[in-house]
């Protein structure tokens, strides 16, 4: 009886079986790479805002402290976006007829808040507390990047869970002295031996269980 299949069929069948497995794995890898990429997560992408607010000008140029505007960052989960009144502390007199600031004056006059677009926005199923991170010596710039160099605002990290966990699993690279929390790139993070002893007391590594953030 003649052979039904050509001898080459063995090779072809092996190639297709393993090829299919490889392609499936490759597709999964590709999906993973895309979903975790900076591109898909809009890292370093400027969002449209009602006013072209420049952190660079206000922080580097004028030397304002983060906390002048972000009032609740030291004690609260939410850092706080300043009320229009805080803008008007200075802009009642400075640039008070600038067309760029017309939305601010409009908001001040009518009492309708400015509708800023959140740049760093976590999903609603995860809880992050600014206060505890500030109190334990995490610098603003560790997560937010060099805000004092951002003429318009973008986010510096993917905000993915791995991004949080990387830090919690190696806190010694990220936790610094409390006095340096609001420092910027001009005075970078310097950790001493005492800082490391302090870091162990914080038990940062323990906060990697699910319910630390998902509750």
């Amino acid at each position: 009886m003649a052979q039904i299949f050509h001898p080459l069929t063995n090779v072809v069948s092996r190639a297709t079986i393993f090829g299919a497995l490889l392609m499936a794995a490759g597709a999964l890898w590709l999906i993973y790479m895309i979903t975790t990429s900076d591109y898909a997560n809009q890292v370093s992408v400027v969002r449209a805002q009602p006013v072209d607010f420049s952190h660079e000008h206000h922080v580097s140029g004028l030397g304002l402290d983060c906390r002048y505007c972000h009032l609740s960052v030291e004690n609260s989960a939410f850092a706080g976006v300043p009320a229009t009144e805080i803008c008007m502390n200075c802009h009642s007199q400075i640039w008070s007829d600038s067309p760029k600031l017309a939305p601010v004056r409009e908001s001040f006059r009518t009492g309708m808040p400015l509708k800023w677009t959140r740049v760093n926005d976590l999903p609603d199923f995860v809880h992050f507390h600014h206060g505890i991170h500030i109190q334990k010596g995490i610098q603003c710039r560790t997560c937010h990047g060099d805000m004092e160099k951002m003429p318009l605002t973008w986010k510096a990290g993917t905000l993915h869970m791995r991004w949080c966990l990387d830090c919690h699993r190696s806190p010694e690279d990220h936790v610094g002295p409390r006095s340096a929390v609001f420092a910027n790139s001009a005075n970078p993070l310097v950790s001493t031996a005492e800082d490391f002893a302090e870091i162990e007391k914080y038990q940062v590594r323990k906060q990697t269980n699910c319910s630390a953030c998902h509750y």
């Binding site: 989960a77 939410f78 706080g80 976006v81 808040p113 999903p123 609603d124 199923f125």
Partner: peptide, 10 residues
């Protein structure tokens, strides 16, 4: 679940 009916601050 990303954007739940609860209100976030502001």
């Amino acid at each position: 679940m990303y954007d739940q009916p609860k209100v976030e601050p502001l």
